[in-house]
């Protein structure tokens, strides 16, 4: 393998560039982690954090012993897990028939789906509908709002179209009905796209601030993003009133952020390989 000087140089430059880019992406996260292990005073001093300064676990101790974070954690997990499973189910159920060439009025149905991508009801009408459905102040409000997104349906539809039709025909010959074909043959083949969508939906639900904030009133229904916001805003309010509050110092905020990141961080690497495949497949054929 002879390489010209030019290509070696290019590769070196390329690597350096990508490593630098990687470091730039990683640093904000690393800074939060370092902050969360630093003492309060050091955290307030700011500046560059390559390593925790004045290593201490105080921040974690003070959050982990409070019950409100676990309530929020439980609610966020519930919304994310139940929401993702249901969303995948409904999205694939919508996408499968729409991917069939033989579906009557297919274009009409597809344009209905597309329509929702461009036009939405807006905040207030949606709120009023949710109110009439008695979903205000219920975790289901957040789940229901994210059940079927037009974009996901289209990605899924395009993926199903790439599956050979012969598969279904042969299953049909063996006596399988369409519902069985869908669950036994189509869905397992859709794993890459399901994984991709699952990740999108899960991250979206986990990070969802606005809907949780608007639709959930009770303290016992608080989700993590809302809690984080309360903690961060609490620090500012306390300083204005001259009522310093222990729970919302800079390092506690960082620790809360780190804790709230953990679940998604631990899922990501395992879904990553599907992720790339799934996105590509969806996009190229679109």
């Amino acid at each position: 393998m002879d390489k010209s000087i030019g290509s070696r140089f290019f590769s070196a430059a390329n690597h350096t560039f990508l490593v630098l880019l990687g470091v730039m992406m990683m640093y904000p996260l690393w800074r939060e982690i370092s902050l969360s292990f630093s003492s309060k005073e050091e955290a307030l001093r700011g500046g560059l954090f390559l390593w925790p300064k004045h290593f201490t676990l105080d921040a974690y101790r003070s959050i982990l012993k409070s019950d409100y974070i676990w309530t929020a954690y439980g609610n966020s997990l519930f919304i994310t897990i139940v929401g993702t499973v249901l969303a995948l189910f409904f999205t694939s159920c919508t996408a499968y028939p729409l991917a069939k060439r033989t579906l009557p009025f297919k274009k009409v149905f597809v344009s209905f789906v597309l329509f929702t991508m461009i036009f939405s009801g807006g905040l207030i009408p949606t709120y009023l509908v949710m109110k009439e459905l008695h979903l205000i102040n219920s975790l289901w409000a957040v789940i229901v709002l994210h059940l079927v997104s037009a974009f996901n349906v289209i990605i899924m539809m395009n993926f199903i179209r790439t599956l050979p039709e012969e598969l279904e025909e042969s299953a049909m010959m063996d006596g399988a009905n369409p519902i069985r074909i869908f669950f036994v043959i189509i869905l397992p083949l859709c794993k890459p796209v399901l994984a991709t969508l699952a990740l999108w939906i899960a991250v979206g639900l986990w990070n969802n601030f606005f809907h949780s904030f608007i639709y959930l009133n009770d303290k016992s229904l608080m989700t993590l993003p809302v809690l984080l916001r309360l903690i961060i805003a609490g620090q500012k309010e306390a300083d204005q009133l001259g009522e310093a509050i222990e729970t919302s110092s800079e390092s506690v905020i960082a620790a809360t952020i780190v804790i709230s990141l953990l679940p998604i961080l631990s899922v990501y690497p395992f879904l990553q390989k599907y992720f790339i495949k799934g996105t590509l497949l969806g996009s190229v054929k679109a």
């Binding site: 409070s66 009770d218 303290k219 016992s220 608080m222 309360l230 903690i231 609490g234 919302s248």
Partner: peptide, 9 residues
Amino acid sequence: NLSAETYPA
């Protein structure tokens, strides 16, 4: 309009 995450339900 207040942030008090510790306030009990």
